[in-house]
């Protein structure tokens, strides 16, 4: 027993030595500008690694895709988004003005709508090997036996070699073992309402399910600030303030400009 743990520790040290020897082991991070997130992740989202974003429920597809787009905003470079034609039917097609609203310039995006998951994974590997790509988003719905440990390991190795950040978006799927650096669970969260009970900025409940060599299990309620391109903590009290249909007086000097507030007269 003792002997085997010793052996494991020895192997770990050996691996660490090998990893340090490689130039790619010096991970660059993309900062979140969110103190807590950056602290837990050791400085931000690791570039050139494989990250998984899970939406356990198909109804949260919008939130998970939004989270991937928000991460893509920060990563920079060209973004190649690969999805299947059936995902487009089930979840709707990616809408360029909506990407603008999140802060992602659609001109940076190359969209691939492919016939099946196998084509997505095969094309995904090609994309990840291309060093000019900033981030690759691989969107797959449901259980995917083809995306096993080997396939994800292949993606992760390719990502480390080329420096492309890979975001694997799994909608309506159970987490399976993978070579991902981090794994996130994303769910929609009630937004902090604006005047007159209007739905507010994109709000997400984000859980760090797994992190290689780091703390995990942390959970945040985040709101995406598109103008600053960063996450901020959602103000929960604001979230409970206005029930359905309530008339809220227009607050002078509120977060909105007077022009926007004037037409925001819901109902």
């Amino acid at each position: 027993m003792f002997e085997s743990t010793d052996r494991v520790a020895q192997l770990r040290r050996k691996l660490a030595r090998i990893e340090q020897g490689r130039p790619s082991a010096r991970t660059r991070h993309s900062r979140f500008d969110h103190a807590d997130l950056d602290r837990v992740l050791g400085g931000g989202l690791a570039r050139g690694r494989l990250h998984e974003v899970y939406a356990a429920d198909g109804g949260d597809a919008g939130s998970a895709a939004g989270f991937a787009a928000m991460l893509g905003c920060e990563l920079g470079g060209a973004i190649v988004w690969l999805r299947t034609a059936s995902a487009e039917q089930r979840g709707g097609r990616l809408h360029a003005p909506g990407l603008c609203e999140i802060g992602l310039d659609p001109a940076r995006l190359i969209l691939g709508v492919l016939p099946d998951a196998q084509a997505v994974l095969r094309a995904g590997l090609d994309v990840v090997r291309c060093p000019d790509v900033g981030a690759a988003v691989i969107e797959l719905w449901g259980a995917q036996p083809r995306l096993d440990l080997t396939a994800s390991r292949r993606l992760a190795v390719a990502a480390e070699a080329s420096g492309v950040t890979v975001l694997v978006l799994r909608i309506a799927a159970e987490a399976v073992p993978s070579a991902a650096h981090t794994r996130w669970g994303v769910r929609a969260a009630a937004s902090a309402p604006l005047e007159a009970g209007a739905p507010g900025h994109a709000a997400l409940e984000v859980e760090l399910l797994r992190q290689r060599g780091g703390p995990e299990g942390a959970r945040w309620l985040l709101e995406w600030d598109r103008d600053q391109r960063r996450f901020r903590d959602e103000d929960q009290h604001a979230g409970r303030a206005a029930p359905y249909g309530a008339v809220v007086p227009l607050s002078a000097g509120g977060p909105l400009g007077a022009g926007a507030a004037a037409w925001r007269n819901a109902g």
């Binding site: 003005p97 603008c100 609203e101 937004s191 604006l194 994109a202 598109r226 926007a260």
Partner: peptide
């Protein structure tokens, strides 16, 4: 300062 007015999907 506006929230997203157009959907992502």
């Amino acid at each position: 300062g506006e929230p997203p007015l157009r959907p992502l999907h």
